[in-house]
Design a protein around this nucleic acid. Sequence first.
DNA 1: AAAGCGTGGAA
DNA 2: TTTCCAAGCTT
Length: 360
Amino acid sequence: MDASRDTISDLLLDWYDRNARVLPWRAAPGTPAPEPYRVWLSEVMLQQTTVAAVKDYFARFTARWPQVTDLAAAADEEVMAAWAGLGYYARARNLLACARAVAARGGAFPDTEDELRALPGLGAYTAAAVAAIAFGRRAVVVDANVERVVSRLFALEEPLPGSRPAIRALADTITPDKRAGDFAQAMMDLGATVCTARAPRCLLCPLAGPCKARAQGEPERLPVKAAKKAKPTRQGRAFWIERDDHVWLVRRPDKGMLGGMRALPDDGWIARSDGSGEGPVAGPWESAGRVGHVFTHFALELSLQVHVGRLAGDPPGEGEWWPLDRIDEAGLPTLFAKAARLALAGAGAGAGAGAGAEAA
DNA sequence: AAAGCGTGGAA
DNA sequence: TTTCCAAGCTT
């Protein structure tokens, strides 16, 4: 083959045929596509989330709910608990809504980008990715990897996110009519393993020839990104109410932080910053220590207040007594899983209740 | 359309 | 330790 005639997609697809990562939700290059359900599920899990973090969740979901209709029939609480720890919990609510929408139309995903885009939780990226990977449609798939690769390939100096329209237009020009799914995955593999954010491995790159950033000598400088805001720290309190080897858990509202997830009662650290709120039942409360946790937009220092064995009835409001020996199955998001660990460690530590301890 | 929304791994 | 950041979506 005359190398001078190789297009960027040819170079990349040849590289992909030899270097594709082996992933549980992926078919080997050139083999039939996986079921749309598996492609969609993996794409949603992978939104802003690393491959390493997704693998176990993908295995558990597909073992427990082998078809989209199985997932559609599951109870909300079961799915939310299964998602616990993966983050961005709106994805889990949208996942269920999408599964039920697909089940309602007979259990088959639509096979066009526009129809996919209309489903809950599928934005421009995911709709294009599913259309290309599951259905072989030509679609322009742009995620953070593609943004980085294209920014370097064409040496775009305009900072993100302003450069997105230009990136999309350029990605369109290099997307092939055939093997669009492989092309999309090849771009993402390249971004994940070669054209990395820091210290790109240009010596291994199949696109080093045409890459303008490479020619200019500082590929790691691109893409330029807008400066990030400083992250404030908030204070808050969470309340561990224990009685007869059970702890009182609540369900958080669907909207907002950790929406729809089981949780410990707290003082509303989302809205307020003084962390001095009252507990849901009358005192006395004892301190079990502090839990530090970093969210996307702020860091939280949570003081854990405990109230053990002195309560006659139920605390006010909705909630449930959850058995301590099954606390791992409650599906607590990481912040509250840390708090539970602290409370249980404090109980086992005897006098002092672990006051002042810091959970990792 | 800018901001809100999790988590854990790497450097 | 701190910073960055990963297959984005919604409002």
